[in-house]
Design a protein around this nucleic acid. Structure first.
Length: 414
RNA sequence: GCCCGGGUGGGGUAGGGGUUAUCCUAUAGGACUGUGGAUCCUUCGACUCGGGUUCGAUUCCCGACCCGGGCCCCA
């Protein structure tokens, strides 16, 4: 009986996996150079971690089960909550800021479609301990840099929740959450209907509609005339100035919203074309979560990159990996192993394990796209040499086995 | 959970109520046990599953599953 893989999961064959790993390493490398350190959290957590963060509403999309000790366990649907849980448990007394990155798989029970799977990978970065624009701008700049190094083009949109939230001070939090959700969806009609339904204050309503449609460089000034001199506004202005210093293009977009309360200030999203309905490749912002997990209140800012989505649009190909095949006969097997073992210190080396003839070994070398064949037959063995064959040109030279690696590097790989 | 489209060897396909189910490619072996790419031969290998209609279903109908696209959701 043939067993298929579960819905929404994928197998990665060598070619694709190699590319994924290559891009992953570029992202890691970038995060490390910016001073972020990798952490790892468990694949499963107590389910409360996620319901506390995101509400009971997420239960429908979580992979969860009871373990044998009757504990309610969830496969992580995201990584920010586990990282902050870890911070509260282990890292509260290390020097601030705490700068962390992670790359891991997450699980959500959703209908699969383009760019959306039930097991998917997130690359994320969190900066814990600062609520200053310097922190926010560094995080956005790092996100952009990482996408750039992965060969992904994106449109950066930056907004600020503190500013939009100031409009509904004194409102029921249920009401403001609902408004935020509709704003986030860009559902203007739904928003109108909802504002009608709750009989929203005309002035607030007018300001809200204007605010979420503000874009461009003059937006900050327009906000000031619209709702006055908020303290968050000067931070936001500083943030935008810093973005200019980083040399990044962006669109100010007060229409970016989040339906959850723990987002506090700056929010940003990066979109990429060619992905269909799931065009967001990165999302982030500043937030306060530690206190929800039993820690002290502390400001954080971070983002997560949808790794599977950037793989769909990334333009970078990993460098070709050159291979050599060591070809031998029955009598020279031992010597061939010695030579291959030595050569493996420098490049990818294959040797026949199928009991194939000389010709068939070369055929195999050709089939796997080997760059050269190192032939060690009885004639060569008698001379203490090997034949080195360039598989592209077909030319073959006799070289001393001690010069083999050198010769390959100089004349074949160049 | 909802809507639309689709499922034929490992990959790509032709076909169609009764066929030995087409072709290409890939794999393994051989022609060819000291030299690859070409050619030829052999081998392996498929109608997603379950019901229904029918004398007979891979083909028609329904459902499930899976894939793709969209909705919902997006922490």
């Amino acid at each position: 009986m043939k067993i298929s893989k579960p819905r929404g999961t994928r197998d990665f064959l060598p070619l694709e996996n190699h590319k994924r790993r290559y891009i992953e390493n570029r992202l890691r490398d970038c995060a490390l150079r910016w001073g972020y350190q990798e952490i790892k959290t468990p694949t499963f957590e107590h389910i409360e971690l996620f319901t506390v963060k995101s509400g009971e509403g997420i239960l429908g999309e979580i992979y969860n089960f009871k373990d044998k000790g009757d504990r309610e366990i969830a496969l992580r649907p995201e990584l920010t909550a586990p990282v902050m849980r870890m911070y509260v448990n282990e890292l509260t007394s290390v020097p601030k800021p705490v700068k962390l990155y992670y790359f891991d798989n997450c699980f959500r029970y959703e209908r699969p479609q383009k760019g959306r799977f039930r097991e998917f990978w997130q690359f994320g970065v969190e900066l814990i301990g600062s609520q200053r624009p310097e922190a926010d701008s560094e995080i956005i700049a790092l996100a952009c840099q990482m996408l750039k190094e992965a060969g992904v083009d994106g449109d950066l949109h930056i907004g600020h929740l503190g500013i939009i939230r100031s409009l509904f001070e004194g409102q029921d939090s249920e009401v403001s959450s609902q408004i935020m959700r509709l704003v986030d969806k860009k559902d203007d009609k739904g928003l109108d209907e909802y504002l009608d339904k709750i009989n929203a204050d005309i002035e607030m309503r007018d300001k809200l509609v204007k605010l979420i449609n503000l874009t461009g460089s003059s937006a900050v000034d327009e906000v000031r005339t619209l709702i006055g001199d908020l303290p968050q506004l000067s931070d936001f202005r500083t943030l935008l100035e810093l973005m200019d210093i980083y040399g990044l293009e962006y669109t100010v977009d007060f229409g970016i919203a989040r339906g959850l309360d723990y987002y506090t200030g700056m929010v940003f999203e990066i979109y990429s074309s060619g992905l269909g309905a799931q065009n967001q490749v990165c999302g982030g912002g500043s937030y306060g979560l530690a206190h929800l997990f039993g820690g002290q209140k502390i400001a954080s800012t971070g983002f997560a990159i949808g790794f599977d989505r950037i793989m769909e649009v990334c333009t970078i190909e990993p460098p070709v990996q050159e291979r050599a095949v060591v070809v031998y006969s029955e009598q020279t097997y031992k010597e061939a192993i010695r030579i291959a073992t030595d050569l493996k210190k420098h490049m990818i080396v294959d040797m026949d394990v199928m009991g194939r003839s000389f010709g068939a070994q070369l055929k195999y070398a050709n089939a796997i796209g080997a760059r050269c064949a190192v032939i060690i037959g009885e004639d060569e063995a008698a001379l203490g040499k090997v034949s080195l064959k360039d598989m592209d040109s077909g030319k073959q030279v006799l070289v001393d086995k001690n010069d083999l690696q050198n010769h390959i590097a100089t004349y074949i790989l160049k």
